[in-house]
Amino acid sequence: MIIISLLFFMTATAISMLWLRDLFAVVMLSGIYSLFAAVIYMVMDAVDVAFTEAAVGAGISTVLMLGTLALTKSKEKVHKKIAYGPLALVLITGGILVYGTLDMPHYGDANAPIHSHVASRYIEKSGLEVGVPNIVTSVLASYRGYDTLGETAVVFTAAIGVLVIIGRRKKKRKKTGAVNDGGDIA
């Protein structure tokens, strides 16, 4: 019941984000959407995921979106023509995704593949092998240490990408007379 009402609020937030033209309100609503998602993860006992969603989705990305908003206009341009091609593409993709969820195991199904593969081994043995009370941490940092190294490299690459694309050092106009596009990377 809690999850259904939370999902209702999430849907309402998403639809109002679609209707609003004021981008500041849209950014705020996307933060609220992330908070609802975090609460749903919390209800599902995925505390670590909820933590990350609240910190990244509701916190940092809202700030970054506001920073982007300061660079652009805060009103969305209104397009009067309806683009039928993209609309059809979105509807078909969405339909396929919904069709795909029909095959997914029910929430809490004990026979679901994620519960029958290696999860039981982690639950039984991680206390003896790793000795860390939080199984999420022992899976993340020890059993799946390679994956987490890859994730850290992804975060590193993302930040480097941002620095390369918009973090260029601007040549001073007073000295050079013109902005050099090929300025060195800051």
């Binding site: 022992s138 940092a141 020890s142 850290t152 975060v155 590193f156 993302a158 930040a159 941002v162 918009i166």
Partner: peptide
């Protein structure tokens, strides 16, 4: 395992904090 997890998590923390602050500064 305890020492390894501590070091590795510290590495993740330092990179993520550095990444978030770098991106914020750039914006």
């Amino acid at each position: 395992q305890h020492l390894g997890i501590l070091l590795v998590e510290l590495g993740v923390g330092i990179t993520v904090a550095g990444a978030m602050m770098s991106i914020f500064y750039t914006f």
